[in-house]
Design a protein around this nucleic acid. Sequence first.
RNA 1: GCACCCAUAGCUCAGCUGGAUAGAGCGUUGCCCUCCGAAGGCAAAGGUCGCACGUUCGAAUCGUGCUGGGUGCGCCA
Length: 580
Amino acid sequence: MNLFADIRSLVIDALTAMQAEGALPNGLDFSNVAVEPPRDAAHGDMATNAAMVLAKPAALQPRTIAEALAAKLMADPRIEGADVAGPGFLNMRLSPAVWQSIVRAALIHGTEFGKSDMGAGQKVNVEFVSANPTGPMHVGHVRGAVVGDALANLLAFAGWSVTREYYINDGGAQVDVLARSAYERYREAHGLEPEIREGLYPGDYLIPVGEALKAKYGDSLLDKGEQVWLADVRDFATEMMMARIREDLAALGVSMDVYSSEKALYGTGQIEAAIQTLRDMDLIYEGELEPPKGKEPEDWEPRVQTLFRSTAYGDDVDRPVKKSDGSWTYFAPDIAYHYNKVQRGFDQLIDIFGADHGGYVKRMKAAVAALSQNRVPLDIKLIQLVKLWKNGEPFKMSKRAGTFVTLRDVVEMAGADVTRFIMLTRKNDAALDFDFDKVLEQSKDNPVFYVQYANARVNSILRKAAEAGLDVSDALLQGADLAKLDHAAEIAVAKRIAEWPRLVEIAARSNEPHRVAFYLYELASDLHGLWNRGNDDPSLRFIQDDPATSQAKIALVRAVGVVICSGLGILGVTPVEEMR
RNA sequence: GCACCCAUAGCUCAGCUGGAUAGAGCGUUGCCCUCCGAAGGCAAAGGUCGCACGUUCGAAUCGUGCUGGGUGCGCCA
C-alpha cells in the first residue's frame, strides 16, 4: 500500500538482477538506497540515490550504474521514464495509472488507507500526562495529553500494540499537602474559618472535597491531630482529584488504558527489588555527591547517600535513590515503575514529560537501559511550554483554580477539537503560542479551520453531485474510470494522497504526530487549489456533463476526504461535515 | 560551572534521520466570483539556514568549538 516502498523494492530487485548479470559486484549493502519524492517536481515523481550510494563500494562511476539501472527499471510498466541527473540521481516518471490506482486504493481502504504494519505488533507503552493528583489539570498538562494521545493513535495506526498509561504520583509529600489543604476545607464546611497557610493549595476546587469529607465523616475529624486523619483524608482527596482528572481527560477526548500508582509500589518490595537488581549489577553504592557548581545550595553539606551509578549508562553524575535520612527519593519508585513496565513485556517505552523535567531524562534512560539489559529503548519526549493569549495579551489565572488556567477553561473556550489540533501544530520541543482569538477565527490563517473547511468542501461536492442526480456511493466511485483523471493538477492531488502512507511511517518512526497536522494542511491546500482552478478552467470542475468523468473527479475528491478524516482521526479531531 | 532543548524570509513556523535551485502562512504588491461554498485561489518580491572549522560525491540536517535565548542541576515531585 506504500507506493514508495513498492518502488524501492522494484529498485532493489533491479540491482539484484544487475548483480546476477555481473553488472554490479556481489556483497553490496543496499540499506542506504533510498527512494523519495524529489523536492522539485520537475525532476520527476521518484528519485533514487542508488547509483551514488553504490558507486564507491562497487568501484564504478555513478553514471554507469544509473544508466544500467534505468534500463532495467524501464521494463516495469509502472515506470514511464528514468533519467540520470545531477551527480547521479535516477529520476523516475511514473505512469498516470500508478497515481490513479492510488485514488482507488484510498476509496477501497477508506480510513484504513495508510495503515502500516511497520510496528509489527510490537508492544509500546506511552506514558503521558501523569499530573500530580493534587488538583485539576492545567494548561501545562494539555499539550502533553494531546501529544501523548495522538502519538498513541499514530503508533497504533502504524502497527504497534499500544498501551496508554498514567503514573499517579500519589506517594510523595505533595499528597500530604493536599490532605492538609482538604482538611481546612473540611473545617470550612463546618462553618469554621479555613487556615490556608503558605504552602497549602488555595484553589476553590477543594471546597467540594471538604464538603464530601463532612458528608462521610461528619464532625468526627474536627479538632483532631493530623496523625488521626491524615492518611484517610489523603486517600479520599487523592481519589476525588483523580476522578476530576479523568473527567478533564475525557473532556479532551483522552482515555487511558492503565493507571499506575506510585503509592502502590511502597510496601510491596517492588522498589527494593528494582534497586536490588541494580545492586546485583554493581550499579548501587553508598557515596557522597559533589556539590553542584555555580550556585551552590546555601545549606550544602556533604552527606552519604545511596547512589545509582547512572554514569555507567551515559549520565553526567550518579543519582541518589535514597535521601540522607534513608528514605527513598522520587527517583527510586520511578525506577521500580519503569522496571515494572519492562517486566510487563513492552518492547518500547515512551515517556511524555514537561520540559522542566529535562534534567531527568538521562538518569531515567540509564535506569531503563540497565534494568532491561539494553533490550527496551526508552524515548522521552519533552513538551515545551504553551503561552496563552487573549485580546492581544497574555491570558493568565483561573477564577476556579486561583493560580493557574485549567484544562477545563481551555476546552470550554476553544473546544476540544480546536485545542487538540493547535497543540499539534508545533513539534513537541518548540514553544507554542495559543491565541484564543486566532484559533477560533474562521479563515485560512487558522489551520484547524482550513483543514476542516477542506473536508466540508468534500462533503459539499458530494451533496451537490447527488443533487445533480449522480450516484456518489463509495461502491460506485471505487469502480470509476480513473483514467479520466488525466490533468496534471488532478494527478498532483493524487500524488499527495500517495504520500500519506509514507508520512504515517515517517511520523511514527520519529514519534512525531505533529507531522500529520502539517500534512493535512498541505492536502487541504491542494484541494482548495484544485477547486479554484475550476473557476478558470471549467474542465477541472468536479461535476461535468459526462457522468463517467464526474465520477472519476468526485472519486478523487472523496479520496482526499477519506485521508483528511483518517488523519484527523489520528489527531483525535472530529471532522466537520459542514461549515456554519 | 555542567547538562539538555532552541536558533531557517520583516513576523510565526515546516523541512522526509545527508540529497538537486531551502518551503508554507501572515504581512507587502498585483490579480481571480453572471461560474460546484471568495470562509477560497493565483502571481511577484523577500534567505551568508546564528558564527567558524570538520566529515562526505553532497550538510539547514551529522561532528567539534563558539555566540545568543530557554530549562534543569543532592536531602522537591
